[in-house]
Each structure stands twice: as structure tokens, then as C-alpha cells.
């Protein structure tokens, strides 16, 4: 549990308290495998695909999707990680989030980028990621794959590949990991 807590960015001073488990590790695995197939279905070739996992919650899903996709396509699909802390629009409104590492080794010009994240909520993280990615070149297209779409969008952003649609209330919190998906609340420590 300590490891999971550390890897998930929480607003400082709060802790996630799970209420119900919605998906098991198996369910997650199968959903990601389906998403990999959907990506193959939409793209003739995986050669110019680049998976970009968002730090920190999107990283394990990006790793898993990369494994599945590479296995199906029988070639090593390019992938990297992106931290959007420096591109957020709420800098100064909240305490800053400690940045994690960014590793995008290729020029994205004329490639198809698939942003991978764990939970799609307001869409503001994805907006920040879109801004950030433009610094690595002009991608031919950018798509979005998320494990959980929980609604409550504040920006005109929709995902291309979804693991599971999950209607939630704003006061609830979703914890998505490859070991499973839980719904619960964030409470003060």
C-alpha cells in the first residue's frame, strides 16, 4: 500500500480511502488488451506510433499497453513518459505537485502520439499534455487512451480509447492501477 500511495499524486495532506473495488487486476488486463486491439484496428502500421504515459498515474498503464501492443504487432512500439506539472493552468491556485521525470526520446513531428493516462476527469491534465507535446514537434495526430473515464469534463476533450466508463460524483475519488480500480474518497490526513 505504501508503494501505491507514493506512486499516486494526491493533493498534499490527503489520503485515498477506498470504498468499493470496481475492477480486478484481471479486468484491467483484459480492458487494456482490448484497447491495444482497438489501436491496431485504427492504425495500419504501428511504426510511427508513440505512446506517451502521463506521470505518475498513467505510467503503469502505458507500460502495460506498450507490452500488449508490442506483442500483438510483434514489434517494439515507441513509448515515453511525460510530466505536465510545468504546463498546468492551476499553478499558484494549489500547492505545486512535485514533478516526476519526462522521457520522450524522439521528435514527434509526423508521428501519431497516443496519450495514456489512468483517469480522465476534468480534462485539464490532458490540455496541459497537449501543450507540452507541441514542444517536441508537430505530431500528425494526437489520440487519447484512458483506463477510466469518470466524466465531469471542463474542457472539450474526449478519449479515443476507454478502458471503462464510470459515472461518479464530484466528491468521490477514483484510484486506478493495474492491480485494480477502486472508488472512494479523499480525506484529510
Amino acid at each position: 500500500m505504501a508503494e501505491r500511495e507514493r506512486r499516486h499524486v494526491r493533493p498534499r495532506g490527503t489520503v485515498f480511502v477506498p470504498r468499493t473495488q470496481l475492477l480486478s487486476a484481471d479486468d484491467v488486463q483484459r480492458a487494456v488488451r482490448r484497447m491495444a486491439h482497438e489501436i491496431i484496428e485504427r492504425h495500419e502500421s504501428v511504426d510511427d506510433l508513440v505512446l506517451v504515459g502521463l506521470q505518475t498515474g498513467g505510467v503503469p498503464f502505458c507500460e502495460l499497453l506498450h507490452r500488449e501492443l508490442s506483442a500483438i504487432a510483434a514489434s517494439d512500439v515507441l513509448h515515453g513518459y511525460l510530466d505536465v506539472a510545468f504546463y498546468r493552468d492551476d499553478v499558484g491556485l494549489h500547492p505545486v505537485v512535485e514533478p516526476a521525470s519526462t522521457t520522450i526520446a524522439v521528435d514527434l513531428t509526423d508521428r501519431v502520439v497516443i496519450i495514456v493516462d489512468d483517469v480522465l476527469y476534468t480534462g485539464r491534465t490532458v490540455r496541459a499534455a497537449l501543450n507540452a507535446l507541441s514542444d517536441w514537434g508537430r505530431a500528425r495526430a494526437i489520440e487519447l487512451a484512458v483506463m477510466i473515464d469518470r466524466g465531469h469534463r471542463e474542457l472539450p476533450i474526449r478519449p479515443d480509447y476507454v478502458g471503462k466508463n464510470l459515472p461518479t460524483a464530484r466528491h468521490e475519488a477514483v484510484d486506478a492501477h493495474i492491480e485494480g480500480v477502486w472508488i472512494g474518497e479523499l480525506v484529510a490526513k
Partner: peptide
């Protein structure tokens, strides 16, 4: 950290 930091804990 100093300029964007936001005051204290959330």
C-alpha cells in the same frame, strides 16, 4: 517552488 508554490497545504 516559491512563486508558484501556493500557500501551505491543501
Amino acid at each position: 517552488l516559491t512563486v508558484a508554490g501556493g500557500e501551505g497545504d491543501l
